[in-house]
Simulated assay, not measured.
Amino acid sequence: MAEAEESDPAAAAAAAAGSSPRSPRQCTGSSERPLSEEEREKLRSDRVLVSDFKQQKFELEAQKNWDLFYKRNSTNFFKDRRWTTREFDELKACREFEAQKLVMLEAGCGVGNCIFPLLEEDLNIFIYACDFSPRAVEFVKQNPLYCPERCQAFQCDLTKDDLRATVPEASLDVATLIFVLSAIHPDKMQQALENIYKVLKPGGIVLFRDYGLYDHAMLRFKSGSKLGENFYVRQDGTRSFFFSKEYLASLFHQGGFQTLVNEYVLRETVNKKEGLCVPRVFLQSKFCKCE
């Protein structure tokens, strides 16, 4: 169920045309992205929700829709996430001594775009990797870099399957939720966090990155795509939620976590030739299990 910032078609189009995010155009902070009056009017006028019948259908077919996504795209859709150790120094710095093995969970691992760069870079790491889609898990296991001594991939619905069936209770140093929670129905997000809480050590950390409120992808949804407040469905039946920092902090606090960092990442993908400016908004956060 791994989602990625590259998945927004407009951003992908801008990148394909030769543009790229530039560091002077990226910033972090506590404030939401300011909207134009046109953007505000679009959000105000989009009040029609998808029918209850269709919403139930999307929920019942969520796993099938993600499996079909990976059938269509194989391992080619998302780029390898080689930025994780740069953005999250806890992947290196949370060990007491250099040779200490880091034990982590990649929740929503997709086809392994995060785990395999980490396994290549760090020899003292063991990664549990789970995904909602059985097809995605099979792609992970078929990767030449997959090694059962260093990684264990398994299918899991974070909202109902007990992680402790595979991951020992209170055994993890780190869990990552990178473009994953947004794909879960808001009513079930709390269950997913409580599930992860049980397998983290006291002092263990959740590293989070996902869609932020007023991201370009949110504003591109057409009328008839809205499931609820800040919650939308794509044409392929997969869904996406867009987080405010207040909403995200509340979710984690209810799950027993303490906030360490919780910031918006504001970024622009610019293509001068095509006259495109794609504003991206993500939330990048760190939460600690403190008991």
Rank of each mutant, 00 (worst) to 15 (best):
F287A: 04
E59C: 00
L49E: 03
A217Q: 02
F88G: 00
G203K: 09
N113Y: 14
T75Q: 15
N113I: 09
N230G: 02
G203H: 05
S244I: 08
A99V: 01
L68Q: 12
F78W: 15
V199T: 09
L181R: 10
P148R: 06
R220L: 12
P24K: 05
Q100G: 02
A99K: 10
P21N: 13
I196L: 14
T269P: 00
C109P: 02
N76Q: 12
F58G: 10
L266A: 02
Y247C: 02
F252R: 10
S240I: 14
D8G: 04
R234T: 13
V180W: 12
V174I: 14
E138S: 09
E138N: 13
V103H: 09
T176W: 01
Y128W: 10
V281N: 00
E3I: 11
D210C: 10
E194N: 12
S51E: 03
S31K: 06
S133Q: 05
F208R: 10
P24R: 05
G110A: 13
K188W: 06
E291F: 08
E229K: 14
A153M: 12
Q155W: 13
F154V: 03
K92Y: 03
F179M: 12
E291Y: 10
D67G: 07
A4W: 15
F69D: 06
K92W: 00
V174L: 10
A16S: 05
L49Q: 06
Y264M: 10
S45L: 08
K226G: 04
N230C: 08
F78H: 14
R82P: 08
D80N: 13
Q55C: 06
V278K: 04
I127Y: 03
P117R: 05
C288Y: 04
F282C: 08
S31Y: 03
L35M: 01
Q284L: 13
A13T: 10
S51C: 00
Q63A: 01
A107L: 15
E37S: 12
K201E: 00
K245R: 11
L213C: 04
P279E: 01
F243Q: 05
Y197N: 05
L119S: 00
L193V: 14
L248D: 01
I205C: 02
K42C: 01
G228D: 07
V270S: 01
C114S: 06
K289Y: 05
V48A: 02
L158N: 05
A16G: 12
S36D: 07
R72G: 05
E39Y: 12
R33V: 06
F252Q: 11
R209W: 10
Q254N: 14
D161Q: 11
V281Q: 01
L193R: 08
R135D: 07
F77I: 14
E96Y: 11
N113F: 13
Q258I: 09
